[in-house]
Amino acid sequence: MRALLSELKRALCIAEKDLKEYYLKPPTISWGLVFPFTFALAFTLRGRSGPWLAPSLITLSLFFGSTSMSAASIVFERRMGSFERLLLYPISYTGIVFGKVLSSFFFGLLSSSATFAIIWMMFLIKPCYPLLLVVSIIGATFQFSALGVLLSFAVKDPSQAMTVFNSVRLPMMFLCGLIIPFSRLPPWLRYVSLLLPPTYATESIKYAFAGSYELLPPTIAIVSTYISFVIILYVTAYFIKRSIP
């Protein structure tokens, strides 16, 4: 228990350091606000209605914000050689990954709160299940942040990270129900969707807003979101271990 607490403390230190160094800067914060606002405006101009738009917009800004931020900080640190410093401290690889996820998580929460405020002001929409929405957003933010960290370690050469990153992230965006509703996907593609972690987060957020679901019941969606987060955490820790020559 004591060891776990000390790991958590160190992970929080990493998160605090990342927030100071990368996230809490005026350009990053404004990007976190401008991005959801631009998306909301774009979808509204295309005639999308509020009840459909709200969950998709929140999930989309979370997905883009959280995955980009965690990946950007790691890719930068790997290039500069400062990521190596974290490996010198008495903390496990899982602890390091959790610290990196936490910083992106806090930023994601800020960004999703801003998105929610924009949606509320534009459409006056209230979620059907507010508590479920909070639990879903927390799970989704953890999952997306971890996904960003995983992808930035899955590539050996940091300079190729963003190319690999977008080639994975963009298809995910179209297949997890964020932009195209599942009902419009061919049945075989829905099975592919079930293999993608963001599908579960999207489904639970949609249910919390609209009170109905397309592909998965909310309990399964939420539990799967949290389980997939833990799996991604450990897989990333394995990738770090593997990256040591």
Partner: peptide, 27 residues
Amino acid sequence: GVVPDISNLYAELSCIDNLVFAARMYG
């Protein structure tokens, strides 16, 4: 304590923040 062949502290952090972060990582 390890001093690698490159000075790889965190560029955007101040000197004091870099040292405080290092200390806190040692508990």
